[in-house]
Amino acid sequence: MFEARLVQSAILKKVLDAIKDLLTEATFECSDSGIQVQAMDNAHVSLVSLNLRSDGFDKYRCDRNLSMGMSIASMTKILRCAGAEDTVTLRAVDNPENIMFIFESPNKEKLAEYEMKLINMDQEHLGIIKTKETSYSCVVKMPSQEFSRICRDLSQFGESITFACSKEGIKFSASGDFGQATVKLAQTADADKEEEAVLVTMQEPVKLTFSCRYLNCFVKAGPLCAQVQLSMSNDVPLVCEYKIGDIGHIRYYLAPKIDD
């Protein structure tokens, strides 16, 4: 028996918004410690790593480990049926062919149950992110809205954005046929609010170029968290991380552009 309850179904809606442009289907690995998804996009350029800890749920029970293949589009359709204030419960038996989504209104007067067929997926298990945390040359924390804005604005100029980070701050730039654009963000000396701060932790400067198309998918996670963390080292994939309240995180890995 697997059962996981979240008082705020809105969190799950936002999680789906954050992955639906990158993944058409994904395996949800459920265990005693929580729910995990690790999946690459079709082009193997980016990877989504979603982690929802069991202790972050209002109720969580997982008697045996389950791997459930789910269509992200179908899941999105079902979550659209949940009211903004509804509680959501995910439920499945031990060898499931289906998963149930149960939505309950705050006053408990409305109970809606949706059943979704699971899909058989080739078990492409990615043992990538289980190694100990890599130390990165630069780690930048900045407002997620600002990051979304910069990615959107600079995407108008070209297909890629260059991130250059030094101890002073981070510079984003793009160029294309009709011109070029640069946005510099200085490290904030004393931001009034923690969520408005720009913080740079630097071992050595980095300069990396990434595809706009993927960055603009990652920023869909913005509504999950006021701050985004960008971890960078030269010639290795970017890690773009959004915390999901007290329950977990979503990390996107994106391979940099490489010189031919």
Binding site: V45, P237, A255, K257
Partner: peptide, 14 residues
Amino acid sequence: TSTQGRLDTFFKVL
């Protein structure tokens, strides 16, 4: 010119 890298180049996919 530069081309988009693939994660396979950086990580060993099990």
